[in-house]
Every structure is written in C-alpha cells, then in structure tokens.
Amino acid sequence: MNKVTPFDHLVLILGTLLMVTPIAIAVMTSTHTAADIHVNGLSLLPGGDGIETYSTVLTHKGGFTGQVTGARMMMNSLILGLGFAVGKIVLSMLAAYALVYFRFRFATAMFWVIFTTLLLPLEVRIMPSYQVMAELGLLNTYTGLIVPLLASATGTFYFRQFFKSVPDELLEAARIDGAGPVRFFIDILLPLSRNMIAAVFIIMFVYGWNQYLWPMLMTTEESFFTLMRGIKQILQVWIGSQIPDYNQAFALAVLALLPPVAIVVVFQSWFIKGLTESDK
C-alpha cells in the first residue's frame, strides 16, 4: 500500500541529523582547547584536550567565592532530580489513592484544590513564591530547592489516570480476599504500578534536573548551585574576558545534558508510555 520512497528516508535522515548535530558539536567541541575553538570555530571532530578540560571543570573551584566545583554542582543537580522525583511519586501516589479509591465528603472539592495547580506554572508566581520562601527561611536549603516544585499536580494526575484504568474487579476481589486499604495498596496496587512509577520517575527526574529559574532564585550560596545555575555563572564570567572558556562551557553543558539524555534514551519505552498515556 504505502510505498516507502527514498525521499521519505532522505527527509528523516536529514531531519534527524539536523536535530542531533548540535549535541554532537557540544560533545566534540568540548574536547578542544579554548584557543583552538577561538581560532577554528566549533568542531564535529574530537580534539585531544577532553580529559584535561573535564577534570578542570569537575574539580576546579570556581565561581565568585571560588568554592564550587563541577562535581559539586552535579551532586546538587542529582539531589534536586532525585529528591524531586521521589517526593513527587510519594506525594502524588498517596493523594491519587485517596481520590480514586475512597468515598469521602469534599472529594470533588479536593480534586479541584489539587488540580488547580495545573493552571498556573511556577513562572507566573515566581516573585511571591520567592518572598514566601524568604519568610520561611528556606533560601539556600535543599528543602527550599525541592519542596516548592512539588506543588503541582502533574504526578497526581498521572497516577489518578493510571489508578482509574486498573480494573474495578481487582479491588472487589481483594476485598473479598480480606484486604483493607493499606494491604490493598501494598499488596496489589503498588506492584501493579511499577511501570507507571518508573515512567513518572524518569519524567520527573529529568524535569527536576533541568530546573533553571527556581534554583537560580533560591540559591545565592554557591555550595547549592546546580549545573543549570553553573551555566548561567560561566556565562556571566565571560563578559570582558579575551578568550572565553568555550571548552569549559561546552564541557559543563555536556555534563548537564548527559544524565537526562542517557536516562531518557535507555528507558525510552517507559518514558514514552508515561508521557503519551497521561498527556501532561
């Protein structure tokens, strides 16, 4: 029926190459020296200074206070990504369990109280959020970095959709088998949700790792800087320098993009399932 023409392949190959080339450029260029890049421009071929550049970026104490290393920033990004993903899964599974499997007064109202958070992204309430954090004394803490990001119902939405798709008869069978709410959750629902948890974990980890605006506002102390914050930092240092540290900037970018890219590529089937089956 639908004949595949060489043109189809051409479009796909060209399109994919264009999409991927910037990543390749970032990786390759990061292995050249700054001077080399300054003279010869960006590169699609590997250079010989990769090890030196990356060890500098990871261990060299930089920043305004000279205290923060790339390794430290990676650690902070990891804490943010993991903390956010785990927190999101725990909170939203519990909330979704209550909303789907319990009959109680104000259930609909609670649904809307939680799901209204989907209406307004953090970006539009960033100023007052910052003020609230300052009042609570949570600036420059991991709690302040992670917890406010949890105030959105995306995860709850995912799990609610998933729980609704679990056949009613399983709960009925479990109740006849003598399982109460706690036992049903632990024995039946949790094992059934394994794939969903994995999918949500991947999506949320990437989301947390990739956060920019919030960490930028919350962390003025460099020991709390994430990689995203570090990128902003390295660009601010550039202004006025003769030969900017192109290589280090690229190395930092590669460090920042590699973990989420690797996770998403390795677990892509879970990731796509989680993404497309529950929309946002």
Partner: peptide
Amino acid sequence: RTALIAVYAIAPPVAGLIGMML
C-alpha cells in the same frame, strides 16, 4: 525516535548555551 528523544531531554538553558555558540 531515539535520536529525537535525546534532544527532548536537553534542558532549556543547555539548549540556550549551545544555541548561543552556534
């Protein structure tokens, strides 16, 4: 699909940095 998903996972500031260089 794998190639395109790789791009999906890139953080906007990283994309901005790479874009700036390009």
